[in-house]
């Protein structure tokens, strides 16, 4: 089998893993002011993702690194084309990461409120930008013969890529609410579940619209299947949430986002970054890929590395499997 195709699939999976994992921790950050009514509740929320958010974030770094190694022209073309959206993502991720670590290090309301704002902003903006970038690579933009963007700095910002941006934001909120319902206890848990049930249809609508749009525009016969999976999984998630089965609902949302990634990247194949101008300039799995030797090396590394990652990240979730509630939160202890 052609290793370039394998790597296209691997990269799609890295993105799916990223959207699944950081999707919920973005959601937790987005909902901080909505669900967290006092500082202790907000600390409960932050601590549900405390041990894992950084590991989740590495998925985007590895997705980017894998694109660089396996499809340099894709990496170069996409990230220079979607320059400003990516910059917003980076700035937001910088603030957000620091905010988690620094928020509890000074014991004043003002300090916490400031970092809470950074967490909220840093959790809304990245899914917006990531959604826009992923839909840009799926829907394409005008390229010249060198694989560079033709047009202005805002070429990647259109109604259809904005739909993609909203799709990932909407998914992240619901996913985060379901995660909080699964990982917290008491009042917060019920509030999170009720919110998830209430907003799910609206919040997932853009994602459903996106997969349908992409299916209509560039889909293959087989990609109808993952599109159907997304709809079914969304429906199941809603139903299980309404029944109070948080774990099943969370898993269904996971199926929905992985299904969406399969649908989007499946429709994209064999392109990696289609040119909406001259189709001859499209970057494809074959013209953007690295040499067979490089792909072979990377395949070996991924064949051992990726399963190991799943094992030890899975272990982390096991170690921190207990629900957290307000009485678990220790008193603030910082230097005077």
């Amino acid at each position: 089998m052609d290793l370039a195709i394998v790597w296209f699939c691997v990269i799609a999976l890295f993105w799916a893993g990223y959207l699944f994992l950081e999707g919920f921790d973005f959601g937790v950050g987005m909902l901080l002011p909505v669900l967290g009514r006092d500082n202790t509740e907000r600390r409960v929320m932050i601590n549900t993702i405390g041990p894992v958010w950084d590991g989740n974030e590495v998925w985007v770094i590895v997705a980017g690194g894998a694109m660089f190694a396996a499809f340099p022209a894709w990496y170069a073309g996409l990230f220079s084309s979607a320059y400003l959206p990516l910059l917003v993502v980076l700035l937001a991720l910088i603030g957000r990461g620091v905010a988690f670590e620094y928020r509890g290090k000074v014991d004043t309301e003002r300090w916490r409120r400031t970092w809470d704002r950074v967490i909220v902003l840093g959790s809304w903006l990245p899914p917006l930008g990531i959604g826009l970038i992923i839909s840009t690579t799926v829907l394409g933009l005008p390229l010249d013969a060198d694989g560079n963007r033709v047009g202005s700095a805002f070429e990647a910002v259109r109604w259809d890529t904005l739909l993609g941006a909203v799709a990932i934001v909407g998914f992240s909120i619901v996913h985060g609410a379901a995660f909080l319902a699964l990982k917290t206890d008491g009042e917060l848990r019920h509030r999170a579940r009720r919110l998830a049930v209430r907003i799910l249809p609206v919040a997932l609508a853009p994602l459903l619209a996106l997969v349908v749009l992409v299916q209509v525009r560039e889909g293959e016969a087989w990609t109808v299947a993952p599109v159907v999976v997304v709809f079914l999984a969304a429906a199941v998630a809603w139903w299980r949430l309404a029944k109070g089965r948080e774990g099943q609902a969370f898993a269904s949302l996971g199926v929905a986002i992985v299904g969406a990634a399969v649908a989007l990247f499946g429709a994209l194949y064999p392109d990696v970054l289609p040119s909406t101008g001259d189709p001859a300039n499209s970057l494809t799995v074959s013209n953007a890929s690295s040499s067979p030797y490089t792909l072979q090396v990377m395949t070996w590394v991924a064949a051992f590395g990726a399963p190991a990652v799943l094992v030890y990240q899975g272990w982390t979730y096991w170690v921190f499997r207990k629900r957290i509630s307000t009485h678990h939160i220790p008193k603030v202890h910082v230097p005077r």
Partner: peptide, 19 residues
């Protein structure tokens, strides 16, 4: 340079950053 330069970068992510 992606064919050669990208490989150690991706390895850094897969092998080091995750751990």
């Amino acid at each position: 340079v992606g064919d050669v330069f990208g490989a150690p970068l991706a390895m850094e992510g897969l092998v080091a950053f995750f751990v």
